[in-house]
Write a protein that binds this DNA or RNA. Structure first.
Length: 282
DNA sequence: AAACATTCCAACCGCGTTCGG
DNA sequence: CCCGAACGCGGTTGGAATGTT
């Protein structure tokens, strides 16, 4: 069907969101709840298409999102799930409740894929599948012209601390970062204190209501790992605000116990290796 | 200091799926 | 059941930030 691109309409703004737009969007969602994106531009006066509003919310403004600084633990999970699910970022994201699919996808494309390629080429050339170690010079960022990108953690941390979301001059960036943090805090208070009174739940919300929420239980497992502890700050909302695996027709998520076992218990072949891979690569 | 190269990620695009009339 | 609208997802891109020469 020749559907007109929703964002091609005259007067539809593109490009980075401004703090003012964020506030308008957040205020609207505070009042009406997420969903019914079609009505958002109309009702708010935002010169953005509905799709853009939804994306901005889900990828950035939604409370509980953790940004930057993927832990080795998270890396291991992503690597493992990617090997199982392929590039099904939404499905993978459902197991990392505070990461968005976009975030995971970006991180995979910019970091993990390279790491894995490098790791594979190394293991292939060195014969047996020995792990890279931090003492191995080739494991520590000797990509051409990238020597000072060695510590990706450092770079990403620095970047995300300064400005996780807005490409602008440093002053504007800092201002914007703090303003979005405030927006986020505002929403956290809102989401935790307000019973969700939404007249007509969106499809997304229906899904949350109907499905057994795997991530919650998985989080309990993560809880054993202190790295994940901050994820639980939003635990009361996770089941509502976080996507869960949905396309059950095609993809049957492994049972929680299966997944946990696979992720954490399999000796030698599973998470442990990946964690080694993940940490050793730095 | 400047020009050029590379990295990174927010946002966009387009397609497939789901929903509602 | 059909059709159009809305939504969700994964791939791609634009451009700012950062690094190198």
């Amino acid at each position: 069907m020749g559907r007109p691109p929703c964002c091609d309409k005259v007067g539809i703004k593109k490009g980075p969101w401004t703090p003012e737009e964020d506030i308008i969007l957040v205020s609207y969602i505070q009042e009406h709840g997420p969903g019914n994106w079609r009505s958002v531009p109309t009702n708010t006066g935002l010169m953005r298409c509905s799709k853009s509003c939804r994306l901005r919310w889900t990828n950035y403004l939604r409370p509980g999102i953790k940004r930057g600084n993927f832990t080795p633990h998270e890396e291991g999970i992503i690597i493992h799930l990617q090997s199982l699910l392929g590039n099904r970022w939404a499905a993978i994201a459902s197991y990392l409740p505070q990461r968005t699919d976009n975030d995971i996808k970006n991180y995979w494309n910019t970091h993990l894929k390279k790491k894995l390629n490098k790791h594979q080429s190394l293991t292939a050339s060195s014969g047996s599948g020995s792990h890279m170690t931090s003492s191995d010079p080739s494991s520590t960022c000797h990509a051409p012209k990238a020597t000072s990108k060695c510590s990706f953690e450092e770079t990403s941390q620095t970047r995300n601390t300064v400005n996780p979301n807005f490409s602008a001059t440093s002053n504007n960036a800092a201002l914007y970062a703090s303003s979005t943090e405030n927006i986020s805090r505002l929403l956290q208070g809102f989401m935790s204190s307000t019973p969700r009174i939404i007249e007509s739940p969106s499809n997304e919300e229906k899904k949350y209501q109907n499905e057994a929420v795997v991530p919650d239980a998985l989080i309990n497992t993560y809880c054993l790992n202190q790295e994940i502890e901050p994820l639980l700050r939003f635990d009361s909302d996770v089941s509502i605000t976080q996507p869960v695996l949905t396309d059950s027709d095609e993809f049957k998520p492994p049972s929680l116990t299966q997944l946990e076992k696979w992720l954490f218990d399999e000796p030698g072949t599973g998470q442990a290796d990946l964690m080694d891979l993940s940490t050793d690569m730095f």
